[in-house]
Amino acid sequence: MAELHTLTLPGPMLKRWFWLYVWRIDTPKRERLYVGRIGENSSPYATAPYTRMGQNLGFKKSSNSLRRFLTEQGISPEQCAQSDLVSYGPIFSEIGKTEEEDYGEQMEPHKPVRDRTAALERDLRDALADAAYSVLEVVRGKAKFDPKIWAAVLGAFPANFPKLKGVSVDG
């Protein structure tokens, strides 16, 4: 049966920089979380949270990680009561394409920023799991987090995930 639905998108979520995000999915069984970042391994460019939102739930195997995690557990995203995308950022600016540099040259300045964002993604995922949230995926990585930015992340997400209150900034 057809129904009217509304999606409100804040303007800043259109910015192509490095972001962290958490999907909160109200599945038929229980609430599940999926933690991600914007700032890819395979490209020197960042995207916007609204773009990543569609990719996560789309059907292209190289970018639909949220859909894959859900379907591997027998959950169809379309059967979920609600999905909320909680985005934090922009954290770091996109490196951006210049006329003088080619794709390969763009990866070099992109990698350190990507790795710093990946460390924050991993630590946010672990903090949510440690706080007894049901998180779909495991995020691996060896990069070190930036304590100042990590403190800001931990200060932002408890508004949506209250069990994070009191988590140590020390990682």
Rank of each mutant, 00 (worst) to 15 (best):
Y50E: 11
D130N: 14
Y103F: 15
K15G: 13
E40F: 15
D102P: 03
L70M: 15
S76T: 11
L128G: 09
Q106C: 15
Q82T: 07
S83F: 08
F92T: 11
L14Y: 13
Y45T: 11
I95Y: 05
A127M: 07
R30Y: 06
E100N: 15
P44K: 08
M13G: 04
E72C: 04
T98W: 08
V167E: 01
L154I: 00
A151T: 15
A151W: 10
D26T: 02
S134R: 10
S65Q: 14
P49T: 06
G54F: 14
V86S: 04
P49E: 04
R122P: 00
E99N: 08
P77F: 00
L85H: 14
R116S: 05
K15Q: 12
A159D: 14
R67A: 00
F69D: 11
H5A: 10
L4N: 12
V153S: 01
K29M: 10
G171N: 09
L20I: 01
P158E: 00
V153I: 13
A159V: 14
S42M: 13
A152L: 11
R116C: 09
W150H: 13
Q82K: 11
V138P: 04
L20M: 03
L128S: 05
F92A: 10
A151P: 05
R122S: 02
S42Y: 12
D84V: 10
A127G: 12
A132S: 13
A131N: 05
K163M: 13
F18E: 08
V135Y: 06
Q73C: 09
R68E: 08
M13W: 10
H5F: 07
R30F: 05
P158H: 01
V86G: 05
D26Q: 13
P90M: 12
V86H: 09
A132C: 08
I91Y: 03
E108P: 03
H5I: 05
G36E: 12
F161L: 00
G36T: 01
F145D: 12
P49A: 08
K144I: 03
A2Y: 07
M53T: 09
Y88V: 02
R32W: 05
S168P: 09
P44M: 04
V86D: 01
L57E: 00
T27E: 00
D130T: 14
F18V: 12
N64W: 01
V135P: 00
V139W: 08
D126N: 01
G155S: 04
K29F: 10
R125D: 02
G58Q: 11
V86P: 05
V169H: 12
P12N: 02
T98Q: 07
K111G: 09
W23G: 01
Y45N: 08
Q55L: 11
A119L: 02
W23Q: 06
K148Q: 11
G141F: 04
R67F: 00
A159I: 13
V35F: 08
L136W: 07
P10R: 12
I95P: 05
V169W: 06
A127N: 04
F59V: 15
G39C: 14
T8L: 12
T27W: 01
T51C: 05
I25V: 13
